[in-house]
Amino acid sequence: MTWSRKLSDYLIEVHDVDFARGDRSIFKNLSLTIGRGDVTAVMGPSGTGKTTLLQLITRQLVPDKGRIIVDGVDIASLSQSELYKLRQRFGMLFQNGALLTDMSVFENVAFPLREHTELSERLIRHVVLTKLHAVGLRGAAYLMPGQLSGGMSRRVALARAMVMDPDILIYDEPFVGLDPISMGVIAKLIRQMNDALDLTSIVVSHDVREISEVSDFCYVIADGAVAASGSPDELNADTSALVEQFMHGLADGPVAFHYDAPDYEEQLLGKARGN
């Protein structure tokens, strides 16, 4: 691990964050950093709050305790207009693409430009087609979102996320439900975009193999905190029970196969107690 980096090498810092949904605690003293220019993977078993972490970083949610610092600024201190200005530096790819269903692919990608810039129609057309070309979907510009496959929707959403030339691209489960070819395409795009456009990328996923190929640094989150971190190779070699279970997809281990339940035998054969 390269802890020798200076603090300013980190674009996003999460310090001692607690977060609970109702009575259910999601994070307890979570701390992590996202390196500038890196593709950082956040992995972890389902239900550990990976998506919640993204919502915290972008302040769609506010932590109960702790600080989140983006490029040196504590995001809790921002007003709504400052927050919106900061969000223009983010591009986010939602799990299912989240394209606006009443607009064509072209208009979806053009949407942020129309909202935030005064570009001429000619220029908008130029920018949108360039971005669509980058994800290989220039030919689909005039389709409606309902006509796209899952993988295509996500690529359009990626083009939309990039259209404002963000500094940070966030991917929420980009591989879920995709066929192997689409998976490979998305993985390749994540790496390419990051390097070609000088971005910082955060990828939340539990597809260990795909994500190991493209990321520079990985976090494994479990039980509300960072369970392990390191480069993909380091994690692969990690022999702690949880990391091993996760990286190699073993059914049972520290993350139990069974959801908490009363004793099996007692519940099935229990005396006439009505349970």
Binding site: T58, K85, Q88, N96, A98, L100, T101, E115
Partner: peptide, 17 residues
Amino acid sequence: LMKATDQLSAMEMMAVD
């Protein structure tokens, strides 16, 4: 439905209220 399909969150993230 826009909410259920993350379209409203996506707008939030594109800095559109």
